[in-house]
C-alpha cells in the first residue's frame, strides 16, 4: 500500500528494508547513530537530521558511528565494498568531500575499470547538499557536477519521496559506487510511497510535467521551483515541459533531447554555479544533438559564480527562484530571431 510520507522517512525506510533484506548492508558515518561512547542514550541523533533514526535499535553493530575522519571512513566504506559488504556511508555535507575526495575519485571510481572489470565496489555515499538553510559557504554547496565529471561514479539526486526510496534501494543494490545527493530543503517534502521495496533504474529522467511550448530541464530542489514557475506560466498560456534529470550520471540524454526537440525552446535550471556545471553540460548536449530543433537560444538559470552567502537577503538572491525561472521561460518563449 502506498501512503504519504516525507522524503526523509522514505530514505530511512529504504535503508531499513535493505538492511533487513541483506545482512551485508551496513551504514556508517558521523552521528548516524549518535551517542556512541557517551553516557547518555544511544541513537540520540540518528544522523544530524534524524534520517537514520531508529535503525540502531534494529541493526545494532551494522550501524557504525565514525569519528570525524572522512578520508578514513569513506575509504573504509570503499574497502569494505571491495571486500563483500554493501556499505552506505554518510558524508554529512557534500561540502566535506574536499577531505576525502581521493577515496571517491581515485579509489572507488576506478577499481572496476583499472582492475580490468575484475572488481566491484558497491558503495553508496549519501550526502546532503544545497542552499536555502542559511548554512553559508561551507555547508550549502551543490557540487554534483564535480562527481558527475568522474567516470565510474553514479550520481543520483531524488526530488520526491517515491524517487528517494526507489533510487536509494537501487543505489544499495548497484555494484558501482553511487553518490546519493539529498537536498536539505527536500527532506520534509511529502508524497505517496509504496510500503513494499522497489527500485528505480538509473539513467531515466522523469518528465514531471508535460507541455509543448518550453522545456525546463532541472534537477534537485530546482525541479520544485521549475514546477512552480510552470504553474504560473500555464496561466499565461505558456505550457512548460519540466524534466527532472533524476540521475546526472548516467545521464538520460534521450529524454532531454526528445523534450528539446519537441519544444525547440529550452531553459536549464541548476542550483550550482554556472561554469562547468550540469546546466552547461545539458545545454552543450542539446546544442550538439538537437541544434536544428532549436527556435531560441538555450537559457540557463543558475546560481552566480560566487560562494554561497549567509545573510538571508543575499542567499535568497543566490538561489534561482520561480520568478527568475519564469522570466527566463517568457524570454525564451517570446524569442524571435
Amino acid at each position: 500500500m502506498a501512503r504519504t510520507i516525507t522524503l526523509l522517512q522514505a530514505i530511512n525506510e529504504a535503508l531499513d528494508q535493505e538492511m533487513a533484506r541483506d545482512s551485508s548492508v551496513i551504514v556508517m558515518g558521523e552521528d548516524v547513530v549518535g551517542g556512541s561512547g557517551a553516557e547518555g542514550e544511544m541513537d540520540a541523533w540518528g544522523g544530524p537530521l534524524g534520517v537514520t533514526k531508529g535503525l540502531y535499535g534494529k541493526y545494532g553493530d551494522r550501524m557504525l558511528d565514525t569519528p570525524i575522519t572522512e578520508s578514513a571512513f569513506i575509504g573504509a566504506a570503499v574497502g569494505a565494498a571491495a571486500s563483500g559488504l554493501r556499505p552506505v556511508a554518510e558524508l554529512m555535507f557534500s561540502d566535506f568531500v574536499g577531505v576525502c575526495f581521493d577515496q571517491i575519485y581515485n579509489q572507488a571510481a576506478k577499481f572496476r575499470y583499472m582492475f580490468g572489470g575484475r572488481a566491484e565496489t558497491p558503495v553508496v555515499v549519501r550526502t546532503m547538499y544545497g542552499a536555502g538553510l542559511r548554512a553559508a559557504a561551507q555547508h550549502s554547496q551543490s557540487p554534483y557536477s564535480i562527481f558527475t565529471h568522474v567516470p565510474g561514479l553514479k550520481c543520483v539526486m531524488p526530488v520526491t519521496p517515491y524517487d528517494a526510496k526507489g533510487l536509494l534501494i537501487q543505489a544499495i543494490r548497484d555494484n558501482d559506487p553511487v553518490i546519493f545527493f539529498e537536498h536539505k530543503g527536500l527532506y520534509e517534502t511529502e508524497g505517496e510511497v509504496p510500503e513494499q521495496s522497489y527500485s528505480i533504474p538509473f539513467g531515466e529522467a522523469n518528465v514531471v510535467r508535460e507541455g509543448n511550448d518550453v522545456s525546463i530541464i532541472s534537477l534537485g530542489l530546482m525541479v520544485h521551483r521549475s514546477l512552480e514557475a510552470a504553474e504560473t506560466l500555464a496561466g499565461e498560456g505558456i505550457q512548460c515541459e519540466v524534466v527532472d534529470l533524476r540521475t546526472t550520471s548516467p545521464l538520460d540524454e534521450d529524454t532531454v533531447l526528445e523534450s528539446a526537440e519537441n519544444t525547440g525552446r529550452v531553459v536549464v535550471v541548476d542550483e550550482a554555479p554556472p561554469r562547468c556545471s550540469i546546466a552547461t553540460d545539458i545545454s552543450a548536449l542539446i546544442a550538439q544533438h538537437a541544434f536544428d530543433a532549436l527556435e531560441a537560444p538555450i537559457s540557463l538559470v543558475t546560481a552566480p559564480h560566487t560562494p554561497v552567502p549567509f545573510a538571508g537577503v543575499l542567499e535568497d538572491q543566490y538561489m534561482p527562484d520561480a520568478a527568475r525561472i519564469a522570466a527566463a521561460v517568457r524570454s525564451v518563449a517570446g524569442y524571435a530571431p
Binding site: 517515491y162 526507489g166 509504496p194 513494499q196 521495496s197 522497489y198 527500485s199 528505480i200
Partner: peptide, 10 residues
C-alpha cells in the same frame, strides 16, 4: 508510469 511503478516492486 503506473505500470512502471508496479513493475519496479520487488
Amino acid at each position: 508510469n503506473e505500470v512502471l511503478q508496479y513493475k519496479r516492486l520487488d
